[in-house]
Nucleic acid binder design. Structure first.
Lengths: 212, 212, 212, 212
DNA sequence: GATGAATGAGCGTTCATTCAT
DNA sequence: GATGAATGAACGCTCATTCAT
């Protein structure tokens, strides 16, 4: 696709925005700082974006679009639902683990307000959830996943678990590999935390027999 | 009206702050609006709090303190780790499900910035994680929970799942009972999403060749 | 004269005001700090003074009243105008040199605004100028002072010179005796700066051609 | 209108500041009033000055710089110390007498606080004093001024006298020519107030023989 | 008289956005 | 398209003063 010559300016602005938002936070970030880091004049930003808020929105849109496209492509390469879930987890954690500044923007800055969150939930995040939901559904149909589980809860639980791994990684000072957590998270998610034979919250050790 | 300090003024201010923060977001919230909703003068707020930010911090501190105390008390009443986990989940979802405005503040406004998040993570949230971690550890020792799972990951996954249920509930327009989700979440968490016999992401049907 | 028991409170407040005004400046001075230094409640100040500004006005009034009374008494003890001028200079510099905080208030804080200055000029300062003017007049009548000099200019010049000694002393970090300057100032004031024989700016050596 | 910086905006702002500071006093002066009088937006002031205080400081710096330069130039034109002193006095009084508002700022507003005064004393005022001191020194060396007088006292006395003329002129309602006072002040300063033959504070009329 | 909690008016400054060049 | 000087709305906080106790 033909790109206008100055499209690299747009890109530079977005990259500068990620850095400044990550370092200062959305509100404390100064448009003029983003402009200067992108080596453009303040006013130039307004030729490419509607305003400060649009920087955040555009950032989210573009990153999510690519993330979801890639995820879809990778998912096509593995056959079973459990494997697909692992692909999703790995992809999610790898994507965020690659660029800490971007991760900060996604985990923190994009959650400034219910207004933002609703907007994001309604757009690409919905797509992401659908993607996961479809995998779950397939798994429930082909018998690899427990069919009695409410799909929405399963999706949210997986997303929430992954999301928390990322947030925790951001706030941690240690610099571990985020994507190494994909395996244990998926293992936990699929097999559960309970030991075999005592699985389920209602089943209790035999000795406790009379308790309700 | 008594000119004696403390009255219930402090409490009224905090409650007003919850409402205004939830409606407008922390940054857009006006101190004067909080004051007027609390029926005190603007300056009075500064007799009880250091500033706008201190309102948020105090809110978090007081709610978390009570939440954790209650959780501890409830945990003492049940014997096994799986049951304790259900208590935690129920308590978590019930607490947040009771006051939507407070939930908004906790899920959205308190996560404005890495500064806030680090501060909170370092204080009560740490306590909350420890509480959960201790339960997991007990379960792993008495054999009710799989001992090979990395405890930190388990804690974060559970917290993340619960956290996402709350966030999702806030953003949803439907007004379902949040605490009803405790059961399926804990069931999923303990038993896993995979059907028995096909558990584990690595195990694939022997003749998986044709699976899509 | 019978003084009400609590008159010592009034005095304590004024003394505290001098200290705080001197340290912080009038505008930056906090009424509450004055109250706390005087060991009274904030509101108590308003039982003795109309407001913050009244503290400054009262301070000026009382100090000037006493200063002028003392000056008058001391003046009665010496007979000639030149000696009286020395008495005035000594008294002026001694009074201010005794209490640096008070001097700061008089030299700096009381000159905050034309409003203050006009008020003060119109009251006690006018008295002080009259006192000096009367001495000058006496001197001019009895022949000890040059009669052709415009009295007002003489008074202002003397006051200005003394005033500058005080201001300079306040701002200086060295801790010299301010009243030691009375002698040279009066000497300069009476005899002039010019050497005898070359006095007067208009008189130039007849053959001035070679003067450097 | 040109959007180019510097225009005459900076100058307009300073002139507006002089007027507003003179009328309201530094503390009561509103930045927004200065802006509106200068016909610029409030924010524009901050493109040229660091803040309200910087307006005062810049005012002082620029006026003093020019004043001292001019004084130096004029001094070079007259040969003797007594004449130089008259030049200084005339220049001082003329400069202040030309712009009452500016004079108010210099005599009143710039003396808000010891902080300001120390700052000013340490900068241009020091220069001004040095200028005067050099003239005195020259006069003492060439015999036109009494060598036994302490130079610092002489300088302060002259400055103080001139300063008081200005202050007094400002506070007076009558609108006389300030620079007309230069002659009598310098005459008094050089020849002293005492009549010839009775000069000096220690010499007393013979008739007064027995007084101490 | 004394207290001190409560009041609420008041303002310097920042910064996202515009628009003449 | 690009610039960056100019704009001006917006607000958290302080503190002199009041007044119920």
């Amino acid at each position: 696709m033909a790109r206008r010559r100055s499209d690299d300016k747009r890109e530079r602005i977005l990259q500068a925005a990620v850095k400044v938002f990550a370092k200062k936070g959305y509100f404390a970030a100064r448009v003029s700082e983003i402009a200067s880091k992108a080596a453009v004049a303040d006013g130039t930003i307004y030729l490419y974006f509607k305003g400060k808020e649009d920087l955040l929105v555009s950032l989210f849109d573009e990153v999510m679009k690519e993330h979801i496209e890639q995820a879809r492509a990778e998912l096509a390469l593995v056959p079973t639902a459990p494997e697909k879930l692992r692909v999703i987890a790995e992809h999610h954690l790898r994507a965020m683990g690659q660029n800490r500044d971007l991760a900060v923007v996604f985990q923190v800055e994009l959650r400034q307000s219910t207004k933002f969150m609703e907007r994001f939930t309604a757009s690409w995040l919905q797509d992401y959830f659908s993607l996961m939901s479809a995998v779950i559904e397939d798994g429930q149909k082909d018998g690899s996943l427990r069919p009695e589980l409410p799909r929405k809860v399963v999706v949210k639980a997986l997303f929430g678990a992954l999301d928390e791994m990322v947030t925790s990684w951001i706030l941690s000072r240690r610099d571990y590999d985020l994507d190494k957590l994909a395996a244990p998270v998926v293992d936990l998610f699929l097999r559960g935390a309970a030991s075999t034979g005592t699985r389920g919250p209602t089943r209790r050790p035999a000795l406790a027999g009379t308790a309700s």
